[in-house]
Amino acid sequence: MFENDWAILKVQIRIALKERFYFIYTLIVPIFMVFINKNQDLQDNESLYIYWSYIVVTTVFNGFLINLIRLREGGFFKTLTYLMGSRHSIVLANLLVQFFVIQLEIFLFNLVVTIFITHVSAITFLYGFLVSFLAALLCSAMMSGLLLLRMKQVYFNLLISCFFILGIGLLGIRPHGILNYVLTMINPFQLIYGLYVVHCTSGFYIIFISLCVVGYLIMGGLIFRNISVKNRLK
């Protein structure tokens, strides 16, 4: 009954493990940064969450989203959809592989931190493991909006680059007040960070994050449900 889903999941895992290049900036870069910053900002778990947020967003983007966009723009999404009999199996397999990759990366990151920098408690390991499922899902849903863009490939690449540089830059300034709410809504790095730190924040911020989570999950669900097999970038 689920042979096709299992088959696509296996092949996606194989592809993810073969394409190791993106691990450089999704895992090696944050490890490198944590070593650089180890003396100044690793006194609490909240500092770890910034790195986790970076890992989740860059992995979802470089793995899940770019994979889907490459499949679709290369024309293979259409072919694969009719081979499999369902486009949703392909999206779901991609998402499950991202869960696996993100969990692996966050675990390795925490392990490096606990061995070389500062002790990370078992509770933090467990918290990272559990919340990262929701974080990966939320990030995929939020960034699914990019699948709707219809523009030239070159402009798309430019937009994505600016989006990332700005996103990381704005996360680094640790905004407060109204700016924090605005950035949480539009910046995936800030939103995922907000999700990780939600247990250390005020009641209103928890409601706000919950609304964002529900809103983006509904949006992502609708976009993935109606995902087009036709290419959109020119």
């Binding site: 042979e3 088959a7 092949v11 073969k18 723009e73 024309g75 259409k78 009719y82 081979l83 499999m84």
Partner: peptide
Amino acid sequence: AYLAQENEFRVGLTVREIINFIYDL
């Protein structure tokens, strides 16, 4: 089954791995 005209997709698998994927369907 529908093979679209544009199929520029490239992936780092061997042909055997791709055909085995089809056999798993």
